[in-house]
């Protein structure tokens, strides 16, 4: 039981509680030229328990309104700034039919991970499509997307080199070092300038068989429109 039983136990334990958060939290029925700014705060399960903050600005193109902006999130833990994720991108409404709307999201992202052994820094992308039913006071939708870790920089600690592998090769690793698909539901309740949102989805690794230790995501968030 030395060392590596953690994965086995996490697989068992986290099978019962798993989640992740993504950025499509907009009630497309409520967009208005009076409120072009959107501030979003959330707490989520996304490869850990995280807190997030985002800002988006509405570009009110008539048939294809879109939001541009960014968001960042950090997981909880003793060292708050050693891990984080930053996303910058756009969310655009592509089709609207009665109250049904289809939107897409494309974001570039960078993220960082550090523990006693290694520091990872990664550039990637996240794209998703959402089909939803949107009313003024509520919305419900389904989404599917892909989060790709395109290129990752590895920098190992002296501890790793001393205790595990002296000849480990640091530097940029490409092609892609990882990728996860996700699919799930999102819903929300909207008031005049505020939305309360909830999201939940399943995450699968890119081989469609393996799953991450946290193979689901969940998110509770609040939007402030102004």
């Amino acid at each position: 039981m030395k060392a590596i039983t953690l994965k086995s136990i996490l697989i068992i334990s986290l099978s019962f509680f798993q989640n992740k958060m993504y950025a499509q939290f907009i009630n497309w029925e409520n967009i208005s030229n009076k409120h072009k700014h959107l501030l979003h705060v959330n707490i989520a399960g996304e490869y850990g328990i995280t807190a997030g903050l985002g800002y988006y600005h509405l570009i009110p193109v008539k048939r294809f309104p879109f939001w541009i902006g960014g968001e960042c999130s950090i997981p909880f833990g003793n060292r708050l700034v050693d891990d984080f994720k930053v996303k910058i991108g756009t969310q655009i409404r592509i089709v609207a039919f009665n109250h049904f709307q289809f939107s897409a999201r494309l974001q570039g992202l960078s993220r960082r991970y550090q523990n006693q052994l290694v520091r990872l820094f990664n550039f990637g992308c996240d794209f998703a499509g959402t089909l939803g039913y949107y009313r003024h006071h509520w919305f419900l939708g389904v989404e599917a997307g892909f989060d790709k870790a395109i290129v990752t920089n590895f920098k190992h600690s002296d501890w790793y080199k001393r205790n595990i592998y002296a000849n480990v090769k640091d530097g940029w690793y490409e092609p892609a070092t990882g990728g996860n698909f996700y699919y799930g539901l999102h819903t929300g309740y909207s008031m005049k300038k505020v939305d309360f949102t909830i999201r939940a989805a399943r995450v699968l690794q890119q081989d469609f068989k393996s799953q991450p230790l946290f193979p689901f995501y969940g998110q509770a968030g609040v939007n402030f429109r102004f």
Binding site: G48, D83, R111, Y113, N115, L120, G178, N180, Q205, L213
Partner: peptide, 10 residues
């Protein structure tokens, strides 16, 4: 999070 956050990188 040291264990789970890693999954989005690798």
């Amino acid at each position: 999070n040291d264990a789970t956050y890693l999954d989005q990188f690798i």
